[in-house]
Simulated scan of single mutants.
Amino acid sequence: MWADPNVRAVLVLLAFAAAYVLYALIWPFTHCGACGGGKRTAPQSQGRYWRKCGRCGGTGKKIRLLARMFGRNP
């Protein structure tokens, strides 16, 4: 049973999927892809934000899809 390459491939894929679900439930937030995680600054602003991101509202983070599917909304 374990020698069959198809069985091993399916088991490896299931292990990766389970690991990603666990990862999404433990750490439900990721950086915002639109602003780069809150790094949207103007060159002459010396590090201050010049406007809030439209997607994340200036927080720099967004909730992962799987975390939202499992009800981990903030």
Rank of each mutant, 00 (worst) to 15 (best):
L65S: 08
G58C: 08
C35D: 03
R8S: 09
W2N: 05
G38A: 06
G71M: 04
Q44A: 06
W50V: 10
R8P: 00
G54M: 04
N73R: 15
Y23P: 00
A15R: 15
R40D: 02
L25R: 10
R72T: 06
M69Y: 11
P5A: 13
C35S: 01
N73C: 07
R8D: 02
F16P: 00
W27A: 11
G47C: 06
L65T: 11
L14V: 09
A3W: 05
R68F: 05
G33E: 03
A15L: 10
P28E: 06
A19G: 05
R64L: 12
M1S: 09
L25G: 00
Q44P: 00
L66H: 11
G54E: 09
V7M: 04
A42D: 08
S45D: 14
L25M: 11
V10N: 01
V10F: 02
L66Y: 07
T30L: 05
R68G: 00
K52S: 11
A67S: 14
L25T: 05
V21T: 10
P28Y: 06
R55D: 09
A24T: 08
A19H: 12
G57V: 14
T30K: 14
C53N: 02
C56L: 12
S45A: 15
C35I: 03
A19Q: 12
C32W: 02
L14T: 06
L14N: 14
G33P: 00
L66M: 14
N6L: 13
K61Q: 15
A67R: 08
R55G: 01
F16I: 03
R8C: 03
A42M: 01
M69G: 02
Q46T: 00
